[in-house]
Design a protein around this nucleic acid. Structure first.
Lengths: 115, 115
DNA sequence: TCCCCACATCGATACCCATCTATATGCCCC
DNA sequence: GGGGCATATAGATGGGTATCGATGTGGGGA
């Protein structure tokens, strides 16, 4: 029998996280992982539950209107915000339970992420 | 006095989130917003607090060793994991309080993110 | 009906990021 | 001190992403 090479004996108790699972979580996190989208979410949370229209985001963010629409689309596709049309205005509001779920998944004490 | 154009009257109660603040949060989130880094964190949490060495991450992740080192560096620079050298092996462990803090910042019910 | 306004989409561009191979570093054992 | 192993770093590369200006769309008021 050949000599065993020196091995690091980390406890391989837990099986690897599922690929789909990890990518789903990463996709949601990517949606939030942008300074402008963080600011948008902050503002939406502050204005909850009335919602905020695009025109009130463009100026404080300091970016062009198409960019704001772009970020709102990212957040919406991630299921983190809702859109409500009122006349020619579009009001966006945060989906509290989606953000809470994301927070729970990250918290290592509530080990839901290990499911 | 000229006629006021139709305006959306969203409650502009909260001032915009500070730029530095938003970018700091985004930077931390970017560190987690990757499927492989999510898997790494998952494994580190499972193996907490002993830690996991690089060699035990390469194979389950299905990526080359330098890529694993790269991801570990990202997580470490974000303050999310610790590194402990033991002989020629490097053991990485999760910084629970950092992850918890991140989770808290995301949770809209604990409005710390609005600070 | 016509125009204006709010918002979305398109196409282009410049930058960032994850990955690889190749190579350096540092440790341990012989 | 030399060889081999674990890990880190460097450099190159392909794909993704945020941004913009230009343009499309749809509603509302005059």
């Amino acid at each position: 029998m050949e000599a065993l090479p020196l091995e690091c004996d980390t406890p391989l108790v837990a099986r690897a996280m599922g690929n789909a699972e990890a990518e789903a979580l990463a996709r949601t996190l990517k949606a939030v992982a942008d300074a402008n989208r963080v600011k948008i979410l902050h503002r939406l949370i502050s204005a909850s539950p009335q919602g905020v229209c695009v025109c009130d985001l463009t100026e404080p963010l300091g970016i062009a209107q198409p960019s704001v629409s772009y970020h709102l689309r990212i957040l919406r596709q991630a299921g983190l915000i809702d859109r409500r049309q009122d006349g020619s205005f579009a009001y966006f509001s945060v989906r509290d339970e989606a953000l809470r779920r994301l927070a729970t998944l990250l918290d290592p004490t509530t080990q839901e992420a290990l499911a």
